[in-house]
Amino acid sequence: MNLLSRYAECIFWMARYMERAENLARILDVHETFARDTRGATNWFSVVQLNADEKDFFSRHDRPTAEAVIHYYMFDPQNRNSLLSMLRMARENARTLRPWISTEMWTQINVFHNKLLEMSVKDVATQNLSKVCTWIKEECQSHTGITEGTFYRDQGWYFYQMGKYIERADQTTRLLDIKYHTLLPSPVEVGSTLDVSQWTTVLRSTAGYHAFRRVYPRGMSPTTVAGFMLFNEGFPRSVVMCVRQIDGVLTRMRSRYDLRGGAAAMERVDELLAALLSRPIDAVLRDGLHEYLDWIQLQLNVITTEIAQAFFGVQPPLAVQSQSQ
């Protein structure tokens, strides 16, 4: 059966927004316990930096206090990177897609969105933030599970997978980048207690701590942690794992449905994968992790653009979407 370009685009973005929401919850959660300076105060500003939202944030707030940042990323309807905005866009896409997705998928997103809409900053006073983030993660995981169990496997499924893995790869680079932003202002020694605990928290935020321990039972260093999150072949949130998925999904979809478009996107994915596999982690750290992560994000944007041009039609401005961050 034919898949409307507009539907393909909505599916792709619905998947991205749900994945993005889950990761934002992870980032907020990890900041509460993790991103503290030497005096133990939480550095909420790094969340703003991480999302490159400085300009927009300071147009409405004087200082990055806990309350301001949490409100900005949880409930601010004007911030398109807030959880509420993401859920609104995921829901709008899901609403458009209701003839295509399962009723269970739609209902879960609808109820999730409506619950979030009823919440306020009071519900998320800092002591409750972790609980709320856990709830959001679980709702996102429910979505993933319901989708896995009910979404009919045709072209739409492939676009869903592509959206999800592109977003996840992007978000993993952002989580990893937390270290860059939070570390810069403080002169913490590599290998110090604080340093190790920060790396541990990065791993925990991606639910990767135990897997990491299994692979590296002794010692934890920037090399091993960054290497694990970027290149590990078994870790479901590693960048290489995600790009391999994108590669496989795109290849299978094009051949199974005899799609003419997508050759350029395919090339870009192959290039990115080859580049990831050819660069040792030591070289990455030596030349600058932050710059490397930026470069990956840029490649993912290019891939998105190629997919959009190949499958969503040349002018796709009307579906609910935004550019990748």
Partner: peptide, 18 residues
């Protein structure tokens, strides 16, 4: 929706991924 359809040579088509 209207934007999904085009008319070419007095025939109606929809825009798909292919």
């Amino acid at each position: 929706e209207g934007r999904d359809l085009v008319v070419d040579n007095d025939r109606v088509y929809m825009k798909t991924t292919n």
